[in-house]
Every structure is written in structure tokens, then in C-alpha cells.
């Protein structure tokens, strides 16, 4: 009785369980091999470097569960950052007024992706591949080779911690949004629509799911998240440049698929993505403090991805 329940749990959530175990293992091994790893202040401080990737992992999970992909998010970060910095330093618009506008700008750019994908039926991979170059290019047109400073009192949000904890502000935001996204995917009608669309878009359409509308909202959400990341990154670095956040999209996708989200859509949990993201962060931190070379780190993350997938695939009955 109990064993059959465990079996069922394993069959349904093998990837999540595997990454959880790997996370614990990674933590233990890192601490054992390298005592300087076990320093909470260092760990939490260093993990702020991955805040934006962590946030994008959440929205990318929804996109991939819906059977799509969004490669343009990192370009949206740069473009929104460029817009905000330009409005602030060249047009003198107060910065506090611009912060809430960042998700709006990002959302609009995401909606453009959504329009092409949902209304024009173009594959999201190609659309976002094109807008990845387009948005990055527009950031470059705005900023050229200059970098614009953000106001000094706005920089350094990552140094502010919640009283009596090591929780830096970006981490607090991330944890809050983890809960919001988990509820969104697993508890709301919108989340249902996303999953159903990912399983089979045609069937979803015939059973009354507003597929196009769902997709547009989803890409808008993805862009808005990139907008949020953009203001966090501005604060962390203190400058806006067109080439910031380049190439992070692959890290984000790696975290999502490592967490067991099916690239074909229809299956995935926020929990899996969150733990997978933490796993990558811990492994990179552990290797970093042990002085492992960058190229070995890249190889190790690849091997980790394979290990996780093979473990969950070979031990479950799923085909």
C-alpha cells in the first residue's frame, strides 16, 4: 500500500525528487570538500548574482509548460534598462517614477512576441530569436557605446538585507515571486489553460480554452518579468549598457528543463524549476570557491543535466 503510493509519487514527480536529492548532495559535497563554502554570508551574497536568472526561470517555466520558448527575455532586460536609463539621465524623469514602468515596458515587448506567436501562428523559437536581435539592437541604438549611470541612492539593492537575516532584498523578491508563480501555475484557471495548451493546443482550442489569449498574456508576463529583472540588474550594477545579461537565456532554459519541465509542453512544476535553479547556483558556487576552471564548470553543468534526466528517466516506467 505505502510502497505503491511511493511508486506513484516517484512516477509522477521523479525529476523533482531527483533534483532535490542532487541539491542536498551538492550542498553536502561542496561543504565537505571546501570548508570556505560553508559561510552563510558568502553564500547568500553570491547568490544575489543569479537573482535575474532565478526570476526568469519562473516565467520561462510557464512558457515552456505551454509548449513555447522565449529567447528574447535577456534582450528585453537590456532594452528596458536602456529605456529607463535614457529617460532618467537624458530627459530628467524621476527614477522612482520609472521603476513601476519597467514591467510595463517589458510587458509590451513581450506582448509583441505574443502577438506574432498567437495571432500569426509563427513558431516562438524563431520569433523570439529575431526579437532577441531586434531588442538588443534597439538597446544599442539608444545607448551606443556609452553606459548610463543610475542614481547613486538607487544602486546596491542587493546589499540591503532583511533585518536579522542574510536575506538580501533581491532574494526576498525572488522567494515571494516563487510562491506567486507556483500559485499561478498550479492553482488558477490561467495555469490550467497554460498546461492544457501545452499538452495539445488544438484539443485545448476545441475544448474552449482561449489559446491565443492565453499565449499573449503569457508572453506579456514573460516580458514583464524581464522588466522587473531589468530594474534589479540596474540597481545591482549601477549602470545600464546594451550588452548586459547577454547569453543568460541558455542558463534559464537549462534550469527549467533540469527541473523536469517537458520541453514539449504540458508538464512542469515551479517547485522543480526552483530547486533546479538552486542546484545550479550551489554547484557553481561550490566549484567557484574551490577554484575550478570556468570551462570545467560548463562541462560539469552539462553532466549534471544529463545525470538528472537519465536518473529520472531510467528509473520510472514512463516512456
Amino acid at each position: 500500500m505505502i510502497s505503491s503510493r511511493i511508486r506513484r509519487l516517484w512516477n509522477a514527480y521523479a525529476p523533482e525528487i531527483v533534483v532535490t536529492i542532487l541539491l542536498i548532495l551538492a550542498f553536502v559535497i561542496s561543504g565537505w570538500r571546501e570548508p570556505r563554502f560553508l559561510d552563510a554570508a558568502y553564500l547568500f551574497d553570491r547568490s544575489t548574482l543569479y537573482t535575474e536568472i532565478g526570476l526568469l526561470t519562473l516565467s520561462m517555466t510557464l512558457i515552456i509548460v505551454a509548449g513555447h520558448i522565449d529567447l528574447s527575455v535577456t534582450s528585453i532586460i537590456a532594452f528596458v534598462g536602456a529605456i529607463i536609463a535614457t529617460l532618467y539621465s537624458r530627459y530628467g524623469i524621476p527614477f522612482w517614477l520609472l521603476i513601476p514602468l519597467a514591467p510595463v515596458f517589458g510587458g509590451f515587448l513581450g506582448a509583441v512576441n505574443g502577438y506574432f506567436v498567437a495571432r500569426r501562428n509563427l513558431p516562438s523559437l524563431v520569433v523570439t530569436l529575431a526579437t532577441m536581435a531586434l531588442y538588443r539592437g534597439m538597446a544599442q541604438i539608444l545607448l551606443g557605446d556609452s553606459s548610463l549611470m543610475t542614481p547613486p541612492d538607487y544602486t546596491g539593492i542587493e546589499r540591503v538585507t532583511l533585518p536579522h537575516t542574510y536575506l538580501h532584498t533581491p532574494l526576498v523578491i525572488w522567494i515571494t515571486l516563487c510562491l506567486v508563480f507556483a500559485a499561478l501555475l498550479h492553482r488558477t484557471v490561467f495555469g490550467r489553460y497554460i498546461t492544457v495548451t501545452g499538452v495539445n493546443p488544438e484539443a485545448a482550442l476545441y475544448s474552449g480554452v482561449p489559446v491565443a489569449q492565453t499565449l499573449i498574456r503569457l508572453f506579456t508576463l514573460s516580458g514583464a518579468m524581464a522588466g522587473v529583472c531589468s530594474v534589479l540588474l540596474l540597481s545591482r550594477l549601477g549602470v545600464a549598457r546594451y550588452d548586459h545579461a547577454r547569453g543568460w537565456e541558455l542558463d534559464v532554459i537549462t534550469a527549467v528543463v533540469l527541473g523536469g519541465t517537458s520541453i514539449f509542453g504540458g508538464r512542469g512544476t515551479i517547485y522543480g524549476s526552483v530547486v533546479a535553479f538552486l542546484l545550479i547556483t550551489i554547484v557553481q558556487t561550490g566549484m567557484g570557491v574551490a577554484g575550478v576552471k570556468a570551462e570545467i564548470q560548463v562541462t560539469a553543468i552539462g553532466l549534471l543535466l544529463l545525470l538528472a534526466v537519465l536518473l529520472s528517466r531510467l528509473t520510472t516506467g514512463r516512456k
Binding site: 541558455l250 528543463v257 514539449f264 553543468i301 553532466l303 544529463l306
Partner: peptide, 14 residues
Amino acid sequence: GTPPIVATLATLGI
């Protein structure tokens, strides 16, 4: 039976 993008994303790094 690994999904193609996962397998090749892994070997991309490796």
C-alpha cells in the same frame, strides 16, 4: 529517451 533539447543542451556544455 532523453528529450532532444535536454540532451543536446547538456552536450553543448560538455
